[in-house]
């Protein structure tokens, strides 16, 4: 029975995804993003039919598993645009470092300001990077990994919506800056938004996402304990 629910979950997720993608293709409005509409429809459906998340994820995990080969596949744009990446390497690294540090600083200060427990703040810390890294870092820092996963998704959704607005507001013209902003600010979700701006923006974003992940793995355990003592 639960296998059947799992199977239906996968099929429905795919159907909702492709129909919301088609809708988004017609109405290019951020709130129609497939990452908002499809999950909203699924959550409403599951809650109405009293199906638990654990039954949904029996099937859903087969889609999450594909995130692994998808991250490996980022080697393809890196390979294809290698010359460009070599040329802009210092720009990307420096901006990603600045972005990563402001992620730490703003999470710590705002979290402390709102009187959240350290465990919640530590779960917020790695939220701008890609899920597998964020979960790992959260675990190492002493956060709550499943909550971090939710924050990562929150960040991705928000990045999809506000990323293009911030680009317009700052009058950014360089594709490097646009890519770095989306990849550092909103991991894979930002990268997919950057890919829709152009393949150069997408590649820079995927590179920024990777470097932001590495910077977070290396810097979070050093910097975060200090920030929390403020």
């Amino acid at each position: 029975m639960s296998e059947f629910v799992g199977f239906i979950s996968v099929v429905l997720t795919i159907i909702f995804y492709y129909s919301s993608k088609a809708l988004y293709g017609r109405i290019r409005f951020v709130l129609f993003s497939p990452l908002l509409i499809a999950p909203a429809a699924l959550v409403i459906g599951l809650l109405t039919l009293h199906i638990s998340y654990s039954s949904y994820i029996i099937g859903g995990k087969w889609l999450s598993v594909l995130l692994q080969p998808a991250i490996v596949a980022f080697a393809l744009p890196l390979y294809k645009h290698y010359e460009l990446l070599k040329k802009y390497f210092p720009e990307i690294i420096l901006s990603v470092l600045v972005g990563t540090l402001s992620a730490f600083l703003s999470s710590a200060l705002l979290g402390l300001g709102a009187n959240f427990e350290p465990q919640i703040i530590l779960s917020l810390a790695p939220r701008s990077v890609t899920t597998p890294i964020a979960i790992d870092v959260s675990n190492n820092l002493g956060g709550i990994p499943s909550l971090t996963a939710v924050f990562v998704i929150f960040t991705g959704l928000m990045g999809l919506v506000i990323g293009p607005l911030v680009i317009r507001f700052l009058h950014l013209r360089s594709p490097i800056a646009k890519g770095v902003l989306l990849g550092t600010g909103a991991h894979g979700c930002g990268t997919s938004a950057a890919l829709s701006l152009g393949s150069l923006e997408g590649t820079i974003a995927s590179l920024a996402m990777i470097f932001a992940g590495l910077a977070t793995i290396i810097l979070a355990p050093v910097i975060f304990p200090l920030l929390l003592k403020l």
């Binding site: 720009e91 705002l110 506000i162 770095v180 600010g185």
Partner: peptide, 22 residues
């Protein structure tokens, strides 16, 4: 609100740094 402000901070700081250097 925290995630919103923090995400804007990350985007503005990294985007502006890259734009300025390029």
């Amino acid at each position: 609100i925290i995630i919103l402000i923090s995400t804007v901070a990350v985007m503005v700081s990294s985007g502006l740094t890259a734009e300025m250097i390029t």
